[in-house]
Amino acid sequence: MTALIRAWATFRELTSTLVLGIVWLAVLTPAGLISRAVREDPLRRSFDPEAPTYWEPRDAPPSSGLVAFLTERGKLWLVPIVLVLLAVGAIVVLSEGSALLVLLYPLS
């Protein structure tokens, strides 16, 4: 029975990785490529010898609520990505707390 549980855990690991991998390649990678092509780098990954300072002004406290927050940040286009990620996250997490596992434990 322990072997069965271990096999199930491995299977669960693998399916989680697979599902997250699909999202990574199908959603985040193309979105990342596009964002890098059309936007300034949000991480500001280059030195700027001309700039007198790298200090930035601080933003006012952010709104609570995902949509209000992203609107404020001018990043509404992130909403569909977040929704897809949340759906996938829920699937992965639900599968980890699966009913099947609960059934298997007392048998071991």
Partner: peptide
């Protein structure tokens, strides 16, 4: 993630769930 993809999957894999 958007700045590094396709690199960085392992970090995403461990962080997102």
């Amino acid at each position: 993630w958007l700045a590094t993809a396709p690199a960085g999957f392992r970090r995403f894999r461990s962080a997102w769930p």
